[in-house]
């Protein structure tokens, strides 16, 4: 027993390995967080402070001035409202429409159902960049260029959303339950509203999160649809002040930070749901 070989994992090497891992993670976290901290700090500094050396790693006192400067270069609150309006309308619409449509795929048998469902899934594979031109031409044809309607309404019919909700229904609601409700005398509308909707709340939350974040952060469709500055959404307004001559960087960074703030705060409280939602397709494979 005396000559037992020491294994490679002595306490010392183990601690070292653990230390290395933690350092690696800490480094990743710093890199991840830094731009957010930096943008918040810059929002409180004057232009000359931002561009001074060494850089100002502290909270400055120019927040109020930056705020007024921000309102000067863009109608910040109007633009924020526009973003909010489009995101909320699109989210509510998509959640309701997708769950209705998913119920159709779930509860009814009809000729061609599988073909339609497969086509719908296939449509999810088409890259969004390819859809840019047809989307634009349709919007132009309908005469709704430069309207918010063109941004939230098309978002309502969402193949991903329908697919997500239907898959959830399959796992969460047994056919027996639908039959039981039918035997109890409920109509389909009633079954949908009273039995199905309460039972699929989690997936509706997931879909809502995905939709809201996507609409809030959307840039490309507003870029090609909207032309009047008073209809701009946050992303568009921010980019429009990027190339101002002699940019008031403090104000621009303040605006950038404020535009991210709603989602950051929501993430603080609902990180689990948001992460589950945005990886929903991935994790369930």
């Amino acid at each position: 027993m005396q000559n037992v070989k020491r294994s490679a994992h002595t306490p010392k090497t183990q601690t070292l390995a653990r230390l290395a891992k933690l350092n690696f993670l800490a480094f990743g976290i710093v890199i991840t967080i830094f731009p957010f901290v930096w943008v918040a700090l810059m929002g409180t500094h004057t232009r000359s402070e931002i561009f001074s050396s060494p850089p100002p790693f502290y909270i400055g006192d120019n927040f109020i001035d930056n705020y007024y400067k921000l309102l000067e270069i863009m109608p910040f609150w109007l633009v924020l409202w526009n973003s909010l309006f489009i995101s909320v309308m699109g989210t509510i619409g998509a959640v309701f429409f997708c769950s209705l449509c998913a119920y159709g795929f779930f509860a009814f048998e009809f000729r061609g159902k599988n073909i339609i469902f497969t086509l719908m899934i296939a449509s999810m594979m088409v890259p969004p960049a390819l859809l840019l031109i047809p989307f634009f031409l349709t919007v132009q044809f309908l005469g709704i260029l430069d309207t918010h309607f063109a941004l939230w309404f098309p978002a309502i019919a969402n193949a991903f959303g329908i697919f997500l909700v239907r898959q959830y229904m399959v796992t969460a609601i047994s056919k027996d339950l639908l039959d039981a409700a039918k035997v109890d005398g409920a109509s389909h509308l009633r079954i949908f509203l009273v039995i199905v909707l309460p039972l699929i709340k989690p997936v509706l939350a997931t879909l809502g999160i995905v939709m809201f974040i996507g609409l809030w952060n959307n840039f490309l469709s507003p870029l090609i649809v909207l032309s009047s500055p008073d209809k701009f959404v946050l992303t568009l307004a921010l980019r429009s002040v990027q190339s101002l001559g002699d940019s008031p960087w403090g104000a621009v960074m303040l605006g950038t930070f404020l535009s991210m703030l709603p989602l950051l705060i929501a993430f603080l409280f609902f990180s689990k749901q948001i992460m589950a939602g945005l990886t929903a397709g991935a994790v369930k494979g």
Partner: peptide
């Protein structure tokens, strides 16, 4: 993992604006 996930939920435009300033040549 939530911390590392934050960049994914923020708008690419906002993030690119921040990096535009971070990359600024002179200062």
């Amino acid at each position: 993992s939530a911390t590392l996930f934050i960049p994914f939920i923020t708008s690419t435009v906002a993030v690119s604006m921040i990096f535009y300033s971070i990359y600024s040549a002179n200062t």
